[in-house]
Simulated scan of single mutants.
Amino acid sequence: MAQAIETPEISEFAFGYVMTFSLSTMHNWPGVSGWTPLFAPYMPTQIKEKVLGIDVALCSQSTSFCLQYKRSRAVVRAHGNLIEPAYWDKIGVPMPLQYPFYRVQFKGSGDREQRETLAGLEADFSAWPDIVVAYAAPCFHTYKELDQVYRQGMHYPLNGNSAPRSAAVMFKASDFDLPDGEDHHISFDGIHPFGFRHSEEVKTLGVSKIAELAQVERGRLAERAPILRKVLDRYATKKRFGQVRSEMTLSDILRFFGYNPIGRRPAPDELSLFLSRGLESTDVDLTDDEAAVAARFRSLLQQPVGFFSGADVGGETPRSILDVITDLFVADQRAIQLIGSPILTRVTS
């Protein structure tokens, strides 16, 4: 007789590779045009994975994803020893999940500590809604299905018995606990927007919902920059990563505008010359025309955000353009501590 529960034919790494590849090319999904990664997927070392609790970070100017990958076992038919139908029979309610449904196992202290770390990361980043911190698991378990998803794309639904099945789901560590030191599992079918840990409901995000999140308008980065800086500052302080510079030097600002001042003096006809001299404390050697341009640039950096567009910046003390640039700079210094690379600017030192 065929088994009721089938073990996965695929490794966690294989699923993670296909999921990462599909999310990285999400701008090719139907209806998802605004999501593009800022840099290659970040995959931490084993040491940093224990600190962060994730397998991959995919960063975008809209929604970013910090994910811990799991693989799934498939429950393909009813069986008297299954916990899920037994619970629902006990309370006299038809089981909401459809066969086949899937289980992600949590066993031992390692999975428990991983869940606590991921839940902590989610809480630390809660003030920055642009980041989704979650587990990701497949709604399939065979290599044939993996190959189908890889060739067609994660956005194509798989065939269910009565409804299309999402190829994968995400669920948050904060939506469930792992009590009493025993083994547990989260059950889901990829059809309904929920799963269960026994009777405890766990919200799941299918691929269509993930695509919706990727399209969410996040507002102007200038307005969100101080929040991001504060979130990363608090997280880095909590993890004892050490201090970073809170002010930008002349070289930092020039790099922000795409000019590397090290190693050569800019030609007189380059805009970079005006930027450089406009930020210097003295106007020695400037011609009258250069001095005028330099003074103008210096004043522009002190203008409130929205100056160029004419937008109403509001507030009693509007933030200057230089304030915003500095927030992005500091946030990126924290990003370098976390993942080894800036995520918003060109400034790497």
Rank of each mutant, 00 (worst) to 15 (best):
G153D: 06
D124S: 12
S60R: 05
E182C: 04
W88Y: 15
H141L: 01
D177K: 11
D55F: 11
A168W: 00
G153T: 04
H141A: 10
M170P: 00
G80E: 11
R103T: 00
L121Y: 14
G153L: 03
V93F: 04
V93M: 08
S62D: 06
A168N: 01
I83C: 04
A168Q: 01
S126Q: 13
F125H: 14
K172F: 06
H79C: 14
R151Y: 02
I91Y: 12
Y69R: 01
G53A: 09
A134R: 05
V104F: 00
D111G: 03
Y102H: 08
A57L: 11
E182R: 12
V93H: 01
Y69P: 01
M95K: 12
S162E: 13
V93T: 06
L178H: 10
C59M: 10
D177H: 10
E145M: 02
C139I: 09
L121W: 09
A127P: 03
K172I: 04
P157N: 06
F171Y: 13
R151P: 02
V132H: 02
M95C: 14
P96W: 07
D180N: 15
E113R: 14
T142K: 11
V104H: 05
D147M: 12
M95F: 03
N159A: 15
A78M: 11
S109A: 13
V93Q: 09
K172R: 15
A74M: 14
L146V: 06
H155F: 15
T63Y: 08
E84L: 10
V149F: 04
S166Y: 04
Y69V: 05
H141I: 03
Q148L: 14
F65K: 08
D111P: 02
Y150H: 07
D111Q: 09
Q68N: 13
A167Q: 07
A163D: 11
E122W: 11
Q98H: 14
R71M: 04
A86Q: 09
W88I: 06
R73E: 08
T63W: 03
C59I: 05
K70A: 08
A119M: 08
C59R: 10
V169T: 00
V76E: 03
F65H: 06
F140H: 00
A127V: 11
G80S: 15
L58T: 04
R77S: 14
S174M: 12
A119Q: 09
V75D: 00
R71K: 11
L58K: 07
S166V: 01
R112N: 07
D89C: 05
N161G: 14
W128P: 03
K172T: 08
L118W: 11
F171T: 04
P138C: 07
G153V: 06
F65D: 07
C139L: 07
P179E: 04
I131E: 08
D147G: 03
M154I: 11
W88T: 00
A167W: 04
Q98G: 14
A86N: 13
A127L: 15
D111S: 14
Y102M: 01
Q61R: 15
D111K: 07
D111T: 04
Q114A: 12
P157V: 05
Y69L: 00
I131R: 07
N81E: 14
P100K: 15
D89Y: 03
G160D: 08
S72Q: 03
T117G: 01
P164I: 01
V76S: 13
T63G: 08
